[in-house]
Design a protein around this nucleic acid. Sequence first.
DNA 1: ACTTTTTTTATGGGAAACCGTAATGGGTGA
DNA 2: TCACCCATTACGGTTTCCCATAAAAAAAGT
Lengths: 221, 221
Amino acid sequence: MITKVLIAEDHESANISLQKTLEDLAIVDTAHAYYCDDALNKVSIALKAGSSFDLLITDLYFEPDAREQTLSGGMELITAARKIQPGLKILVFSAESRPAIIDQLYSQLDIDGFVRKARNDARELKEAISEITRHRRYFPRHIMQLIEKRNVYAFSEFDIRIITLLAQGMLQKDIPAHLQQNGIKPSGLSSIEKRLNQMKDALGFSKNEQLVAYCKDLGAI
Amino acid sequence: MITKVLIAEDHESANISLQKTLEDLAIVDTAHAYYCDDALNKVSIALKAGSSFDLLITDLYFEPDAREQTLSGGMELITAARKIQPGLKILVFSAESRPAIIDQLYSQLDIDGFVRKARNDARELKEAISEITRHRRYFPRHIMQLIEKRNVYAFSEFDIRIITLLAQGMLQKDIPAHLQQNGIKPSGLSSIEKRLNQMKDALGFSKNEQLVAYCKDLGAI
DNA sequence: ACTTTTTTTATGGGAAACCGTAATGGGTGA
DNA sequence: TCACCCATTACGGTTTCCCATAAAAAAAGT
């Protein structure tokens, strides 16, 4: 059963609606954190006091301000929180829509649910919490579709590296030297051209600009 | 005095927190619209019934779904609503942070206030409504700073057009023909090169890929 | 150990992009 | 009308990219 919930969210308004939604579910034991570091602290303190949180609802991106933070965002918070309390359930509530990012949350950070800030987000939040209470993960169909849409082409580390360098303005002809310096191989110019051609071919593109735009949309770079 | 408020916002959660915030201000006569067209309808109906709204709180961007809409977003809604009820006060509540857009809201659409979905947005909403009640416009300092901080390059329609075409894979040398077909001038290849160079120079870039990536990050394309 | 296959790297010709300069054309004022 | 200014366009040389082919290296198979 989920009774004690921590909300990590910098937007005051989102915080308010989350609290209201939890009230509707008869969950009244809630704590709020407007900064990642605060959130981690509260998890730690509650754990030591023997009254640990059952669920952490967190955003992904926190706007930086004057207060210096060690945790840069929701992903780091999730990793850090799970480190000190492995069983903690985690529900991400964010406006993020890029498939690569959401996929990473499920596959690498092993979160229990993701609700996108969108049309019916309050209703979805209730569904998600209800699922998590039953020790199930929340995988709504439209989120799955979003993730699967990514499987058009599977970018490798190498692919991303090349496209990132291009997006940063590096000349194609200068990439081999850069790869060699970082001990990455293959590093030949022909290999880079070949890889780019394969990607463009698979996606029906003809120019590198298209690859950059596509990867930006996906959140791959 | 502001007593009757219409909220146009597709996010259920944002809607909830707005309602809560208005309740705190003892404003209980509120209506909600999850679509722009609905919002305009409600403004129109209330006006005809002699019980018009005092204030419209609206988001800028509404996610398209199955329901076909004539109004594409908050900006069009504002224009349309002011057309049928010129005196309507308008407060924009959005995550938008691009200076050029916010500036446009104040200077062209003549809105009464803008609150960005951010850290202290609920508090700011109360301040804004309080100001608007006194028939003053809400121009907090940090919003003004955002607008004035226009050191970032202001892309023109022409710029965006060119970069969009590049991101879609069109060859630079083929762009002049395309522009001529659409009756856009200048259309010379040199003019396009010049514009691209100006943009790259202003942003410290050297390659078109950087421009594409930058515009994707900005949401300009 | 040797051959076969695959991957990586090198090379050269042609296309596109880049960059400076010159020519063209349209508007403004004397 | 003419001269002038500005924006736009045209042109030529250089660099980078693109693409096909060949050589070299590495991996796999016998």
